[in-house]
Amino acid sequence: MPVESDEELAEILDYETIAVVGCSNTPGKEAHEIPKYLRDHGYDVIPVNPFAEEIFGRAAYDSLADVEEEIDIVDVFRPSDEVAGIVDAAIERDDVKVVWTQLGIRDDDAAKNAEDAGLRVVQDKCMKVEHQRLKA
């Protein structure tokens, strides 16, 4: 079952390193503003976007497989039909603990695959909203 309880969400929000798949370099877009908020609140945000050289002054990676740093959370800003492939890439890594899909993004089959592989899953929730509600 995807994570729903405030206790579990707060625990997940204690992790520090977030790879943001679909991170945008366009101010005003949610895929830019929410990762910026997370950076501003002390998270290590790793942008994953094959169409960007850098975001927030940091090199952007083409894919999760290319990320050299350890990842705690994979935050997904891509359409629901791309979640399965992102989950597969997260499972391939041995460091990812959580797959989090932003508001309006969900794939129940991919979530089950992630959970079966030992990952925690948060679907259809905004990290910024949950952080403001539980941590700010």
Rank of each mutant, 00 (worst) to 15 (best):
V3M: 09
V3A: 11
E4C: 07
E8P: 05
E8K: 14
E8V: 02
L9P: 07
L9Q: 02
L9D: 01
A10G: 09
A10P: 10
I12Q: 02
I12T: 01
I12P: 01
Y15I: 04
E16I: 05
E16C: 05
A19M: 03
A19E: 03
A19C: 13
V20A: 09
V20L: 08
V20W: 05
V20H: 00
V21D: 04
G22W: 01
G22Q: 11
C23P: 08
P27V: 11
G28D: 08
G28T: 09
K29R: 15
K29M: 07
E30M: 09
E30F: 08
A31C: 12
E33G: 12
I34A: 02
P35A: 10
K36Y: 10
Y37P: 06
D40F: 06
D40M: 12
H41W: 01
H41R: 12
Y43K: 15
Y43V: 15
D44G: 10
I46A: 01
I46G: 02
P47R: 08
P47M: 14
P47W: 09
V48C: 07
N49Q: 12
N49D: 10
F51Q: 08
A52N: 10
A52S: 15
E54Y: 09
I55H: 04
F56A: 06
R58F: 11
R58I: 14
R58S: 14
Y61R: 11
S63R: 11
A65N: 15
A65H: 11
A65P: 07
D66W: 02
E69T: 08
E70T: 15
E70L: 05
I71L: 07
I73R: 00
V74Y: 01
D75Y: 12
F77M: 04
F77I: 09
F77T: 08
F77C: 12
P79T: 10
P79V: 11
S80V: 10
D81Q: 09
E82F: 03
A84T: 14
G85F: 03
V87G: 00
V87Q: 05
V87F: 01
V87T: 03
E92S: 15
R93D: 12
R93K: 14
V96L: 09
V96Q: 01
K97L: 12
K97N: 08
T101Q: 05
Q102L: 01
G104E: 03
R106G: 06
D108W: 11
A110L: 05
K112S: 06
A114S: 09
D116M: 07
G118H: 02
R120M: 14
V121F: 00
V121I: 08
V122W: 00
Q123R: 13
C126A: 10
M127P: 15
K128C: 03
V129L: 14
Q132Y: 03
R133Q: 10
A136L: 13
